[in-house]
Amino acid sequence: MTYNWNWGIFWEMSPEATGTYLDMLLMGLRWTIATALLAWVVALFFGSIVGVMRTLPGRTVSIIASAYVEFFRNIPLLVQLFLWYFVLPELLPKTAGMWLKQLPNAPFWTGAIGVGLYMSARIAEQLRAGIKSLPRGQAMAGTALGLTTVQTYRYVLLPMAFRIIMPPLTSEALNTVKNTSVALTIGLMELTARARAMQEFSFQVFEAFTAATILYLLLNAVVVFGMRRLEKSIAVPGYIAGK
């Protein structure tokens, strides 16, 4: 195979004429970060609600929550994004569908919320496991003190459950970052999409994807670092992972 290595390619102007190839990749990285951040907020928000719902005694609530989890975790992420992006606008009333299609940055919103909902099912399951791992007496003690169910969750169960699931939660944060790359299929120009574009413009496939790989690794290193710091700062003295 003859391949013309050209590591200087990053400093050449891209055909989009908005800057160099490196600028192009960094622009993609910015979209990746923005998408991952919004997706993570969505995932934590809905994951927490659904995870808590699965631990409540009410049957109806629990069935709704399981249905949610099974829907979002059993359909491939790619298919889910296609559903939200291509199918949903057609199913909605005409004006709503049009509004959705013409939304500025539609791939970003759809990608971030789509990835977020997909990840929320996984977070819900982990949170459920975290809550269930607490001794039954903890909830009883909260209840016996006169706390309401909401207060017992807020002040007693969730603070411990989230601490316990910090290690898997870190993995989920990393998965969220990585899964944003699937949004390139609905036209989001994030990092992977930019690397592909660079390859198509310049034919420097190895350089393009080496750069993308390094940028993903760096980004996730920051995520790991941040989650470790958080884990340490909330560690409970005299308890698991505490001093």
Binding site: P135, G137, Q138, M140, A141, G142, A144, L145, Y155, V156, P159, M160, R163, V236, G238, Y239
Partner: peptide
Amino acid sequence: IGMVFQHFELFPH
């Protein structure tokens, strides 16, 4: 009504 449990059930955090 005060309640005291076998396993204390203090809130560890």
